[in-house]
């Protein structure tokens, strides 16, 4: 039975698409047949992050409107087996996603896939509500920053009241993914710590992704950052995927790397 997981946050720019790309790639690498859907109608970007922007022919809305079949619209990832991308439409209005349309597409995908990852748009409008409505689990992407934490709490409220599962009395399983975490700034008490955010949002922690130059490098190249095995951020995403699959792994990169005396003296990074 396929599992539907929404990647959501309320606030924009916190790393939903980066996380959707990384996590879906990680699940596919672990051998699970995975599809990642861009729900951001009008502001398609998952294709760029996944590096398949020039291979988009048909999109999600075309499939809903039966202008194309699912087979025609799904893009097979070139690097990772078992991974497919369903891009968002670039031109249509936001109301192009209807509950019935989305449900029909998800039902068809469920027959073929193990995981369906829904990359939500920012905000709490139609697109965001459609992305989370059918979810079994939710990954709430949060930055250690006041507006992001507040918006995450708002989205949690919506998950708990306006999702299909909430309506049926079986709550959506919630996960906290803390991104752009800077241990150095946490140590000097300039940034909310993991414990602070966990205490406020009160949902289980899936992973902590350190702020990393590798993320921009990866998006420049159109390559999900989880494929960067050298980078802390890539490794942190790999850990998060394993936890999502049920493993228990200790959290890494929560503390600042200790710099040597000379490095400190000379101001090396």
């Amino acid at each position: 039975m396929a599992k539907i997981i929404v990647v959501t946050s309320g606030k924009g720019g916190v790393g939903k698409t980066t996380s959707s790309a990384a996590i879906s790639t990680g699940l596919a690498l672990a051998g699970h047949k995975t599809v990642v859907i861009d729900f951001d109608v009008g502001l398609r970007n998952l294709d760029l992050i996944m590096g398949c922007e020039r291979r988009v022919v048909y999109d999600f809305v075309n499939v809903i409107n039966k202008e194309a079949t699912l087979k025609q619209a799904l893009i097979k990832d070139k690097r990772t087996d078992n991974l497919f991308i369903l891009p968002a439409s670039q031109t249509r209005d936001k109301d192009a996603l209807t509950i019935d349309g989305v449900q029909a597409v998800l039902n068809e995908l469920k027959e073929d896939f193990d995981f369906i990852i829904c990359d939500s748009p920012a905000g709490i409008e139609q697109g965001a509500q459609m992305a989370l409505y059918f979810a079994d689990e939710a990954i709430v992407v949060t930055n250690p920053e006041v507006s992001s934490v507040r918006d995450s709490d708002r989205i949690l409220g919506i998950l708990q009241s306006k999702s299909l599962r909430a309506e049926q009395g079986k709550p959506v399983k919630e996960h906290l993914l803390l991104t752009r975490y800077n241990p150095l700034r946490v140590e000097s008490a300039e940034m909310l710590s993991v414990a602070d955010v966990e205490e406020i949002l009160a949902i289980p922690l899936l992973g902590v992704i350190p702020e990393s130059e590798a993320v921009l490098k990866a998006s420049n190249q159109g390559q999900p950052v989880i494929l960067d095995l050298e980078a802390n951020a890539g490794q942190a995403y790999s850990d998060a995927v394993r936890r999502l699959l049920g493993e228990t792994i200790e959290h890494r990169f929560l503390e600042a790397e200790k710099k040597g005396f000379f490095k400190r003296l000379l101001g090396g990074k």
């Binding site: 920053e145 006041v146 934490v149 507040r150 709490d153 708002r154 409220g157 946490v186 000097s188 008490a189 300039e190 940034m191 909310l192 710590s193 602070d196 205490e199 406020i200 400190r264 003296l265 000379l266 101001g267």
Partner: peptide
């Protein structure tokens, strides 16, 4: 570097403020 270290000393510890403000507004909402 050594020069930044000299002028660094007193940085405001704002994380606690952020946490307190969030706890209040989130509970209210």
């Amino acid at each position: 570097g050594i020069f930044d270290y000299l002028k660094k000393k007193e940085k405001p510890r704002t994380a606690a403020m952020a946490k307190e403000r969030l706890q209040i507004i989130v509970a209210h909402e």
